[in-house]
């Protein structure tokens, strides 16, 4: 049986983290789990994917939520938990995959087969990338980037203990602006392969 490999990719918006995750999944020929994760769960359980997607990667709304023991009424928290349970189950089954976001570096930290990566980037590089990808002006791209990163940070820090982007929580944090997407992928592949040999 092939040895299990899980690559968890956290990323700043515009850093190319998603693209890097995609290239890594193609390189290792393993599944990529990103926003399609909820579609996969919905198909498997006969649920409405749109409803689930609407609540994905959202922070917990205050005042209208209440917790009892480990249960919460917050739909956002429960949808997050649904995904955490799903990836945990997948990992426990021995599946290999690349997972983007979803606090995966925390949820799966008990797995030695996991390599956790955080991709960051220089502000001007990220803005430039967002402008090209979403056809936005620099001003709008910067605003969009800030909104997205704030959202990711609140989601991550609201659902798990470790802080988003804190290098102590990841095996490797890499600035994609230094070597570009391809160069960063090469560094990561080298890192992942070396870790797997340990």
């Amino acid at each position: 049986m092939k040895e299990q490999l899980i690559i968890s990719v956290g990323r700043e918006f515009g850093s190319g983290g998603h693209e890097i995750a995609k290239i890594l999944s193609e390189h290792y020929k393993i599944d990529l789990l990103d926003h399609n994760l909820l579609d996969e769960i919905a198909v498997e359980r006969g649920l409405d994917a749109d409803t689930l997607r609407h609540l994905d990667e959202k922070h917990i709304a205050p005042f209208v939520s209440r917790s009892v023991r480990n249960f919460s009424v917050s739909p956002e928290k429960n949808i997050a938990q649904l995904q955490f349970d799903y990836i945990e189950k997948k990992a426990a089954k021995g599946d290999s995959f690349v997972i983007v976001g979803r606090c995966s570096e925390q949820v799966l930290k008990a797995y030695d087969s996991m390599v956790s990566v955080f991709v960051l980037g220089e502000k001007h590089h990220k803005i430039q990338r967002i402008c090209e990808l979403f056809k936005l002006s620099e001003e709008k791209a910067e605003k969009f980037m800030k909104e997205k990163d704030t959202k990711r940070k609140r989601y991550h820090n609201g659902h798990c203990e470790g802080k988003w982007g804190d290098s102590r929580n990841y095996d490797i944090s890499v600035n994609s602006s230094v070597l570009g997407i391809e160069g960063t992928v090469a560094v990561l592949i080298d890192f992942i392969d070396r870790k797997r040999q340990l």
Partner: peptide
């Protein structure tokens, strides 16, 4: 809280 959470965690939001 427990009923809603149990249902939502299974995708029945």
């Amino acid at each position: 809280v427990v009923g809603i959470a149990t249902a939502s965690r299974e995708g029945y939001v």
